[in-house]
Design a protein around this nucleic acid. Structure first.
Length: 599
RNA sequence: GGGGGCGUAGCUCAAUUGGUUAGAGCGCUGCCCUGUCACGGCAGAGGUUACGGGUUCGAGCCCCGCCGCUCCCGCCA
């Protein structure tokens, strides 16, 4: 007989009912004369009891032989637990099933690691968890993540449908466009020597869909990037990708705010206030030293360029003299910083090319610092007032070119926050989510090594209209109609209003980015041609779906929200991929492998 | 490509910093146990210290190499 209830269903109201449960043996407690078997399925777990006084001995013996994670079918009668034996920690804890039948649907061997105890299982080596992912996913914590992911995907589809979007699938066998992230190449059997590439994003297809008159497109799109991995980066990942016609930036902001509001309500039952705060790129860098600032705590960067322009302290004044800036931040209460922590921060600074890290510790009413003797009284007064310096503070400085100085302190700001959090001096509630838009990015950045401009975002990003004349004369000043959505210091996604006029696009490609015309034709010819036949103004955005789910699940690694993720080296430990191809496969694909064979 | 951390029993960890036979908890096996839910009690099995070299009278520990996992930098239009 099939199951009549799942394992999180029985309540006192079911007392007296004959039921059948199916699931895994979560745990067995054999008291000799009495055996308790907890049966677990996707929904929860229920205690069953085997009492020898009214069971045939072979059945009781069979129950005694059950091991963790055997798959069983147990029938019996629901009854109330005796007084004082309720288990308030599980929702079926007021009842139990007095077993009268047991079928072992499948025995289980001894497990490579425990799945029943959350504290133990959470500490198990990730290598092992990935190899036996199917066991790892049985853990309720992981099941919860999969569920939440599914729920959010559904909420997204519903919301997008309500907003009039069409879900359109785009090819994953795409053309190689060697710009931006490294691509995975796929050899073509039918076209010897030719290759597809897996898309880094459906960027060009979604713009073509706008030319096609779809007007509102979205997709939970699988994207591929052959770059090195991180805790928040996998070689294949998912984006909530969307594009709209006849809109402006404000329309995107409102749409995404609505979507995130819906998602947070669905997933966490939290009401997210809108509209989100907006920060210009320049302001984000100036105040937080990052284009994805975590605004859940202060510790903002303060500018002292003018104060130190004529300082006796040459490191500061010479930085200002060469068009640089002097910035400082006050890590309140961190004067007890350890030498190791100072070393770590100094390393951050050096990684950006700084020579060292200037600091002041405020201890015992004194400024302890190797540099403070060079400061004038006026300089000290300015520091005290602008930084609000008090006993126990740690002041950190950066003097360099604007972006570099800010980024150094931005990195240090985050590190100080971590240290303060660990000490309990900084507390951030886990249900706090600071959403913000970062806007007014520079359209272009300069590559010193190659001596040319490149797109900060991508080459289809439209300039702010009034800045278009500056494209050729002063590219640095051109702002892009680009926007990033940030939450708690995590870049959730980004997008832009696109260039929809072939002429402007041509100027960007040819005059600004200086891509040779024949190369433009080769790579983007079809897109430029499409724009000739009536391309509507359009724009869009893509949100990192895995990161979004990780934030909602409160985990730092997106591997915890992907059913079958890759390791940091891009391998799958369960299936042992990638793996060599056979000679026959290679022949069919017209490939010859030159790499040295392993082993 | 570079830097950091880790790798000891099935799992999580220890091993007095180079010194006898590598330990503990959980798990596993056997026995006992009728109200447990981290059940309890008794007994037992279980080790190529990731792998390969080297130094040493002696290596889990030191050195070199290599593999794997992980975090970060570069990279990610």
């Amino acid at each position: 007989m099939k199951r009549t209830h799942h394992c999180n269903e029985l309540r006192p109201a079911h007392i007296g009912r004959a039921v059948t449960l199916e699931g895994w043996v979560h745990s067995r407690r054999d008291l000799g004369g009495l055996i308790f078997i907890d049966v677990r399925d996707r929904e929860g777990r229920t205690q069953t009891v085997f009492d020898p006084s009214d069971l045939p001995p072979p059945l009781f013996e069979q129950a005694a032989g059950l091991r963790s994670e055997c798959v069983v079918r147990i029938s019996g009668k629901v009854r109330a637990r005796p007084d004082g034996t309720n288990n308030p920690r599980i929702s079926t804890g007021e009842v139990e099933v007095l077993a009268s039948g047991l079928e072992v649907l499948n025995p289980a061997e001894v497990l490579p690691f425990p799945v029943d105890e959350p504290e133990v299982a959470a500490k198990v080596n990730e290598e092992l968890r990935l190899k036996y992912r199917y066991l790892d996913l049985r853990r309720p914590e992981m099941t919860r993540n999969l569920r939440l992911r599914s729920k959010v995907a559904t909420a997204t589809r519903l919301f997008m449908d309500e907003q009039g979007f069409l879900e359109v699938e785009t090819p994953t066998l795409f053309k190689s466009t060697p710009e931006g992230a490294r691509e995975f190449l796929v050899p073509s059997r039918t076209n010897p020597g030719q290759f597809y590439a897996l898309p880094q994003s459906p960027q060009q297809f979604k713009q073509i869909l706008m030319v096609a008159g779809v007007e509102r497109y979205f997709q939970l799109a699988r994207c591929y990037r052959d770059e090195d991995l991180r805790a928040d980066r996998q070689p294949e990942f998912t984006q909530i990708d969307l594009e709209l016609s006849f809109i402006e930036r404000e329309d995107i902001y409102a749409l995404i705010e609505g979507l995130l509001q819906r998602i947070w309500k669905t997933a966490l039952n939290l009401d997210v206030p809108t509209p989100f705060r907006r920060l210009r790129f320049e302001e984000a860098i100036n105040r937080y030293g990052s284009d994805k600032p975590d605004t859940r705590f202060g510790m903002e960067l303060v500018d002292f360029t003018e104060e130190f322009r004529a300082s006796q302290f040459k490191i500061f004044s010479s930085a200002v003299a060469s068009q640089g800036v002097v910035k400082a931040l006050n890590a309140k209460g961190l004067a007890d910083v350890t030498q190791g922590q100072m070393d770590t921060m100094t390393e951050y600074a050096k990684a950006f090319g700084a020579k060292g890290l200037a600091y002041i510790k405020v201890e015992g009413g004194e400024w302890k610092s190797p540099i403070v003797r060079f400061f004038s009284d006026a300089e000290k007064a300015a520091l005290t007032s602008k930084l609000g310096i008090a006993e126990g503070d740690l002041i950190l400085f950066a003097a360099d070119q604007w972006l570099t100085a800010c980024e150094i302190l931005g990195k240090i700001r985050l590190y100080c926050a971590e240290v303060l959090k660990a000490q309990g001096k900084l507390v951030i509630p886990p249900d706090r989510f600071d959403f913000l838009w970062v806007v007014d990015f520079p359209l272009l950045s300069f590559d010193k090594e190659q001596n040319r401009w490149y797109s900060s975002h991508h080459p289809f990003t439209a300039p702010v209209p009034e800045d278009i004349p500056l494209l050729k004369s002063d590219p640095k000043k051109v702002r892009g109609q680009h926007y990033d959505i940030v939450v708690n210091g995590v870049e959730l996604g980004g997008g832009s209003i696109r260039i929809h006029q072939a002429e402007v696009q041509k100027t960007v490609f040819e005059d600004v980015l200086q891509i040779p015309p024949e190369e433009i034709k080769l790579r983007f010819g079809y897109l430029l041609e499409a724009f000739k036949y009536g391309a509507p103004p359009h724009g869009g955005i893509a949100l990192g779906f895995d990161r979004l789910i990780a934030i909602l699940c409160g985990t730092p690694s997106i591997r915890d929200v992907i059913a079958f993720p890759k390791t940091a080296k891009g391998t799958c430990l369960m299936t042992e991929s990638p793996s060599p191809a056979s000679a026959r496969q290679l022949r069919d694909l017209h490939l010859e492998v030159k790499a040295a064979k392993k082993e």
